[in-house]
Design a protein around this nucleic acid. Sequence first.
DNA 1: CGAAAAGACTACTTGTACTATGGACTTTAT
DNA 2: ATAAAGTCCATAGTACAAGTAGTCTTTTCG
Lengths: 152, 152
Amino acid sequence: MRLSKRGEYGLRAMIVLAEPAEKNAMPVVQIKEIAEREQISAKFLEQILLALKNAGMLHSKMGVGGGYYLARPASEITLGQIFRVLDGPVAPIKCVSQMSYEPCGCPDEQTCGLRLVMGDVRNAIADILDNTSLADVTKRQTAVRKKLGIKR
Amino acid sequence: MRLSKRGEYGLRAMIVLAEPAEKNAMPVVQIKEIAEREQISAKFLEQILLALKNAGMLHSKMGVGGGYYLARPASEITLGQIFRVLDGPVAPIKCVSQMSYEPCGCPDEQTCGLRLVMGDVRNAIADILDNTSLADVTKRQTAVRKKLGIKR
DNA sequence: CGAAAAGACTACTTGTACTATGGACTTTAT
DNA sequence: ATAAAGTCCATAGTACAAGTAGTCTTTTCG
């Protein structure tokens, strides 16, 4: 039940990109900067950001002083959306996926015990991911920082 | 966020093995029977059951009339236990795993937004899997069957 | 006893997905 | 014009998943 590196790095990068928006800072951030801050290979990260861009969640600016920025306000981008672009369906098995259902091959889907439980799991995960926006994450981060007395 | 085939088949098989216990039937079931019922390669299933046996969740009987049976009552075996044997930690990223923690490499673990959210996800999943026993699953299955008016 | 049925164990194969890396090209600010 | 940035495409290496094969051991029963 693992999140891929691709998904992990993508989510991390999106969270970083959500921060300047909060501070009313210049929203454009370069790949290189994100890569350094999060310890990610810049080349690999590039592919990931590109995928997110093609999915319409990021915009970019080319040339000197260019970089990436969120296509919509941080409060309107959920972790679930990002996750699905990079890692595919949230559901542990295909037959309980809401967004991209496929039969799983069990003898009787209606009464399959595993399916019933995995349906619960998929709902639990989706509940969290689809109801947490990037803005929620940065808010939570700063709350923790304040509590610990860290400035930054 | 996918369950492996290994995990899927293993959970399916354990659910099958939990059924005769419920009906006070002879508890020993052969690989071949499970494989046919659930449409799984018998050879592959064999490996999986072996792993579960070595983990102490199954016992087996060799020779003619042999097969597998649960090592403990179905009410005392949780899906979480089975899952961990076959697919490893429940947590989406290592740094939020309770059972087998490892640092993930983010700059500051305490204030990492991704980590906070993934911690919630891991807890949601673990809550379900660790609080659902095989007996719970078979109970739920028969409840659905009754509701739908299926005998079997 | 010995043959057949069952599990135990080990090794190998095959495919595919993850995790990158490299290089050529395009756009833009100065 | 040049350098800094993103874009796009190809490919390599690795690891792991999923499945196959074969041999050995134990047990029952005729």
